[in-house]
Amino acid sequence: SLRNIDELCASIVRSHRETSQYRVEELHALRWKLFNREEIQAYQSKSVDEMWQHCAIRLTEAVQYVVEFAKHIPGFRMLSQNDQIALLKTGSMEVVLVRMSRLFNTENNTVFFDGKFAGTEVFKSLACGDLITAVFDFAHGMCALKLTEQQIALFSALVLINADRPCLEDKGRVQRVQRSVEFGLTHILHRDNQESLMHKLYQRVAVLRSLCSLHMEKLRWFSQRYPLTAHSLFPPLYKELFA
């Protein structure tokens, strides 16, 4: 019923709000707080493995918030633990990327990182310029859609609850949750008179998939060159999800 859909949307939006690392207003106030030349230099003079470790820690923190977000999506906790993990293993990074668009300033192509806004040059010592450029391009494209916080919340839930992910035990059950979230997003877009966004959002899903496989590719490259860092210094949760 319509009331059920309203409740579902409200729960997802609440969960999104409560598990966001930063509020939109907070980010807006910091919009022009950029890293200066010395600070950029300090990031650039880090070794490849130092910078990877640093970013792995930041990414893992963001993922932990996504896990909390997932737990409050109606229906998620009814899934088996195996399926919850399967969804998070493939979807948490995608949700982090969707959320990253909230931390992005399109006016100067910077992203909020470590307390200030950073351009691609800050990530130079990761030695994976193509991934960084692709991630920034994705954030730019997401921002161009000018989604509301409610739309971002529902879209994030839809990215996560995907019955086509590998290793699911009860695909049917995931499918039912997925349909309800899809219904919720359609409902919100209809209410906002922005139904045309649905098609554009599904296009973003394909880009997310390619970004995540690029991340995995880079991680394999890194692990081969710096096995010790990847094995001993990366956060355990990062290894569980991506290694």
Binding site: E18, V67, Q81, I85, L88, K89, E240, L241
Partner: peptide, 16 residues
């Protein structure tokens, strides 16, 4: 299960 120990813990944690 051992492979995803931390994820298990995070998911079982009822507080957020």
């Amino acid at each position: 299960k051992e492979k995803h120990k931390i994820l298990h813990q995070l998911l079982q944690n009822s507080t957020s």
